[in-house]
Amino acid sequence: MPTARIAAGNTVSGQGWQAYGPNGIYIDVDTTSGRFTGAPTYVTSITGPGGNQWSLVGPSAIYSPTATGFRVYVQWRDGSALTPATAQAYGWQINWIGYDNP
């Protein structure tokens, strides 16, 4: 019987963010290092040395989870413009933990 697998990782600080309309950004998170056999349960957080992540919405919402990754969309709480350049300037990264119970 296969055993449960737990793995964790993070994206590269400030890298990989893409525009999603004028007010949001997203990042595709690669979890292949976790070697999951199915779509695990993912838990995320957002960090960065530049700060301001406290005023974001969306970092804990997981979209399209698979054994090899998922997507996260974020925007400012007030809906103002947010670009990938902002994420790069703040050094934002997504931290993740995945739990796969086959």
Rank of each mutant, 00 (worst) to 15 (best):
P22H: 03
S33Y: 08
A87F: 01
G50T: 05
V57H: 02
W96K: 00
R77V: 15
F70M: 04
T11K: 04
S55E: 13
T11A: 03
T66A: 04
T86N: 04
D28K: 08
G9R: 11
A7C: 08
G91T: 10
G51M: 07
P40G: 11
S45T: 15
S13W: 12
P40L: 03
F36R: 05
V12I: 12
T3H: 09
R35A: 08
P84T: 01
T86D: 11
F36T: 03
S55K: 13
A39H: 03
L82D: 02
G38K: 07
T47I: 09
G24Q: 10
A4F: 09
A8P: 02
Q88L: 14
Q15S: 15
G48P: 06
I6P: 00
D30Q: 01
G69M: 06
S13G: 01
G58W: 11
T66D: 02
S64M: 09
N52H: 15
G9D: 06
Q53H: 15
G38W: 00
A61I: 13
L56N: 11
V43D: 07
R77F: 15
L82H: 07
S45A: 15
N23Y: 09
V57W: 09
G21W: 07
G24R: 07
Y42V: 07
W76F: 12
T31H: 06
F70D: 05
V29T: 04
W17T: 03
T83V: 14
V12K: 15
Y90A: 06
Q93P: 02
A8C: 05
A8H: 14
D78A: 11
T66C: 01
R5G: 00
Q15L: 10
G21I: 13
Y42D: 01
Y26T: 06
T11G: 03
G91L: 08
T41W: 04
T47D: 14
G69Q: 00
P84D: 02
Y99H: 11
W54I: 14
A85G: 05
V29L: 00
Q93G: 03
P2N: 08
I97C: 09
S64V: 03
P102D: 11
N101D: 14
N10K: 15
G91A: 07
Q53E: 15
Q93W: 01
